[in-house]
Computed example of a mutant assay.
Amino acid sequence: MAVVSYKCPNCDGELVFDPRTQKYRCEYCASAFSQEEINQLQPETEEEKQENTRVPEGEEGSVYHCPSCGAQIVTEETTAASFCYYCHNPVVLSGRVSGEFLPDKIIPFAIDRKQAVEKFLEYVHHKKFVPKAFFHKNQIEKISGVYFPYWMADMDMEGELKAEGRNVRVWRSGDTEYTETKVYRVEREEEIHLEDITRNALRKANGKLAQGVLPYDVNQVQSFQMSYLSGFLAEKRDMERAELENGVKREAEEHGRQLLRETVKGYNSISVKNCRLNCRREHWDYMMLPVWTVTYPGRDGKVYYYSMNGQNGKVCGELPIDYKKVWAVSGLVSLLVFALGLVGGFLI
């Protein structure tokens, strides 16, 4: 499996994707390159590198060699992009984003590390009972930009609804009250198109957080280029489409029924007799989506996660609570109430 590192043609420094400029920046000479230029600069010796960085038999999928310094890079089975622990050179494990694991599309990071840290601090500073250690410098430095794998589906369905509508009118004439009930047969047939039904494709990911950072603006989607991963961490999928199809179809059908129901208006009440949905076309894409994330081991032994959508800054997470702060504030409030009670007693 090849270990790829993208090098600056001017100084041979590593190139990383810059979310602010949407270009590739050299960390050493500050040169910048567009995606088109990167495509032209792709290493011609990639096959040679694959031979030179081939790992010993039995270690495939866990140990590789850095193309810059030769040090061993130890990874988990799903890691697709990482950093060398010694020279901090960004590397992409190309075999994990090729063949059957080649993503169809990617949404590049639009928020860089500096912006991610600013948004993180702004978020936690508004939480009064978060432990100081959670936003200590050492903790903030752990914030990581990660491309997580997702499956995204579009569906075209034919929908048919049969229902009974009722309109009831009540009026009085003299001492008599009259009620008129009109019953209508209601039928609807609609073509329903649903887009961008998104599911996390990494088993070890925190499912609540992986879904919590959604949605993304798919208008910014790009065809997958391996170079987008340079400078970030990345994970490849370990959940296949077949594992998620039933859940996605159920969600699509529920949403389709709701859309059909919303077309029926002008009645006091509606009773649905039959609703049929037939999926006649579905299209799935394997996507890489950007997430800024940080973890915090709480004193209670629980690991807390903070995640932020790397495109629009949407935050999802569960923050730890410093109960000493809670008790201190509670004690202060109780003392204040007691003091006001004494003052009130003296005045009376």
Rank of each mutant, 00 (worst) to 15 (best):
V55N: 01
K23N: 13
G61H: 01
Y64K: 10
K49R: 15
E47K: 14
Y24A: 11
G13R: 02
S34P: 00
G13W: 01
N52L: 14
P56F: 06
G70E: 08
P43Q: 12
V16T: 09
E27P: 00
S5Q: 03
E48F: 07
G58P: 02
S5F: 04
E59V: 11
E60G: 04
C29N: 00
N52G: 13
A30D: 05
A30H: 07
E57P: 07
R25S: 03
G13F: 02
E57D: 06
A30C: 04
S34C: 00
Y24W: 14
D18T: 08
L41I: 13
R25P: 02
C66Y: 08
Y24V: 08
Y24H: 11
S68E: 10
Q50I: 14
Y28H: 14
Y64W: 08
E36R: 04
S31N: 02
T53V: 15
K23G: 03
Q22C: 03
L15Q: 10
E59D: 10
P43R: 14
E47N: 11
S62W: 12
N10G: 06
C66G: 03
P56I: 09
S34L: 03
C11A: 09
C69R: 06
P67Y: 10
C8H: 02
R20C: 04
E48P: 11
E48K: 13
L15Y: 02
G70D: 05
K7I: 03
Y28A: 12
R25M: 00
V16C: 11
T53H: 15
P19S: 13
E37T: 02
Q42R: 12
Q72H: 09
E48G: 07
E57A: 12
Q40E: 07
Q42E: 06
S68F: 12
E27V: 05
I38G: 05
Q50N: 15
Q35N: 00
F17G: 07
E46G: 14
V16M: 08
N52S: 14
A30Q: 01
C26I: 00
Y28C: 04
Q35R: 00
T53K: 15
K49V: 14
E46C: 15
Q72G: 08
S68G: 12
D12R: 04
I38Y: 02
Q40C: 10
F17T: 08
Q40H: 09
T21M: 00
E36N: 12
P9M: 05
A30Y: 07
Y64R: 08
Y28P: 08
Q50D: 14
E60C: 10
Q42G: 08
Q22E: 14
V16G: 01
D12L: 01
